[in-house]
Every structure is written in C-alpha cells, then in structure tokens.
Design a protein around this nucleic acid. Structure first.
Lengths: 153, 153
DNA sequence: CCATATAGCAAAGTTAGCTTTATCAACCCA
DNA sequence: TGGGTTGATAAAGCTAACTTTGCTATATGG
C-alpha cells in the first residue's frame, strides 16, 4: 500500500476524495444558483425529480416514490400533492388494495418535461449555449454518471 | 436555419434544452441528497463554496465575495461569519480603507478543504469508489465545465 | 466641512424541503 | 372478529440560504 518507488502525485483514494470535494462545490453552486432564480410557477427540484422519474419508470405509488427519492412518505405526499394541484400528475385509487394510490404523469406533465418555458431549464440552456458542442457532449456523458451517483448517496 | 435535407433527431436547440433539463434533475438530486445527509459540524454548500473560492483566488473582501457568489452582501456577512466562528477563515481590517474587511483562509481552513472527515465529501467519495477509473475520469473532466456553468448562471 | 456614497453588519421574514408526531382507513391473520 | 400492520395523509417544526429593511462607520467630492 502507499506510493512505492515513484511519486506520481496523489494516490487513488486521495484523488477520489478530491474529486468528491470538487464535485460537491460545483454541484452546490449550480443548485444554489438555480434555486435562487426560481420563479413561481417553475418546478422545484423535488417536483422535477419526481416528475422525471415517473415519466421514465411509469406509474407507481407514493410510497415507492418516497423510497426511490430517499425521503419519508410524508414528504412525498406533499411533493405529489403539489404536482397534482398543477395538473402534471394524476392520483388514482388502486383497485386491488384500497390503501394504495397510484400516481401517473398526465399529458400536461409530459409536455412540461420537454418545455422551454421552464425558467430553470431556459437558464441552463442559455448557459450551455456558451459551450462548444464538444463540451456539451462531455457534459452529456457525465449526466448518467451523476444520476447513478445520486442513487448511491 | 433548421434541419434541412435530413432528419438526424433533435435540433441543436432542442438538444441543449434537453441537456439542461437532465442536468437540472441530476444536479438537484445530488444536492438534495447531500443536504439531507448534512451533519452538524459539516460545511454547508455556501460555506464550502466560499472557502474553496478563497483558497483558489486568495484573500478578498466580503463585498467582492458576494458579487462572485451572486448574493447580497448581507448574505455573505452571515456565511463569512459562520466560517470565522469555526476558525476556517480570518477577518482583518484593511489599512487603506477603514470600511473594508479582508477575508483569508486560515491554516485550519486549508486543512478542512482536503479533509476526509467532512461527512459530505466522504459520502461522495464512497459513492465514487463504485465507479471505474474511466468513469471517474469522465466526471473529473466535467467538473470544470460545471464550475464554468455555475458562473454563467 | 458637509452631503452623499460605500462597506459591512444585524435582524426579521421568506421559501424549499425536509423531519417527527399523530390520524385514519384498508388489509391480513390467528 | 378483533388486533396488529401498512399506506397515505395532515399538521407542526426545523434548517439552509436566501431576501428586504434599516443601521453605523468610513471615505470622498464639491
């Protein structure tokens, strides 16, 4: 263990820690800036996350969504409630189990996901336009990794 | 302008918007998970951002920091105050202008930046260990882009 | 030398996004 | 059929991270 024979800079562990720190700062800055510029009518982070997940993985119950998003069911109740109030998702009763509720994306919800009217998305897109296509491609390759990383936290 | 002759999927604008949306969800998820797992004694996002910036760019005044972080000077007062209370930065009077205060990183602050005792950094590092070196390299290449992006927002 | 601008700070208020505590209805099993 | 479990919800409270409002001290220009 440890650097033997030659000094090639940092060890693998130290580099990973450093990457973690850098990533934390970068992600934190973007998140803070976006939250700051949040306009009423725009989706919050939690809402956007749930809506995107529902669109990708199909209808589920609030309880399952809570597990996937790593929050208490009570927190999901309020997120789901907010999305429903805006007509982006629909709650329906489960016929097999009267306790259960099934949540699914509405047409309007699907439209919002590809919408440029979302202030945050527009803001990000305008920033991304300043990048070269190669740089955007690099970011695009990083997105699935970031998603996976979020799942591991 | 527009797609002429052949259909190669989405146009450049639509793709940028989609990348923006995906990035927003991914960044939001990581930020929410990290904030959730925040332990007392750990740096907050704003504190980490300011401390990292001070380390990279050297001593400055709270006012300049506020501009760089895109917040009101009053918000920076509290962030700087929190960092000072924990001994990570030092406030000193400017000899040339009695109104000004100069903020600089202390030795302890510099130590914290490369510290694995930070709960968030450890959490991220443990997640990153599940990635292949190639994947970590891809993330590493994305970090400066994310930083630049944050500056454009 | 005085009016105005600038830098920093303090306090109170706001919002997102959680949590814990508490209810209630529906299911399941002995 | 009665008792415990489970799913969803409601209400209240907390923290991070801002904001706006208002103050004080120092600097500066006519």
């Amino acid at each position: 263990m440890g650097a033997v024979g030659q000094d090639v800079g940092l060890g693998a562990v130290e580099e990973t820690v450093r990457l973690g720190g850098d990533l934390r700062v970068a992600v934190g800055r973007i998140a803070r800036r976006l939250r700051q510029a949040h306009r009423t009518g725009d989706l919050t982070f939690s809402e956007a996350s749930v809506l995107a997940r529902l669109d990708r993985e199909g209808p589920t119950t609030p309880g399952v969504l809570a597990e996937l998003e790593r929050v208490r069911p009570q927190a999901m109740t309020s997120t789901v409630g907010a999305l429903e109030r805006r007509g982006l998702i629909a709650r329906s009763a489960d016929v097999e189990d009267g306790r259960r509720v099934v949540v699914s994306v509405t047409e309007q919800g699907r439209r919002v996901l590809t919408d440029m009217r979302q202030a945050s998305t527009m803001r990000l897109a305008r920033g991304l336009e300043q990048f070269t296509p190669a740089e955007r491609a690099r970011l695009e390759q990083a997105v699935p990794l970031l998603d996976r990383l979020a799942g591991l936290l």
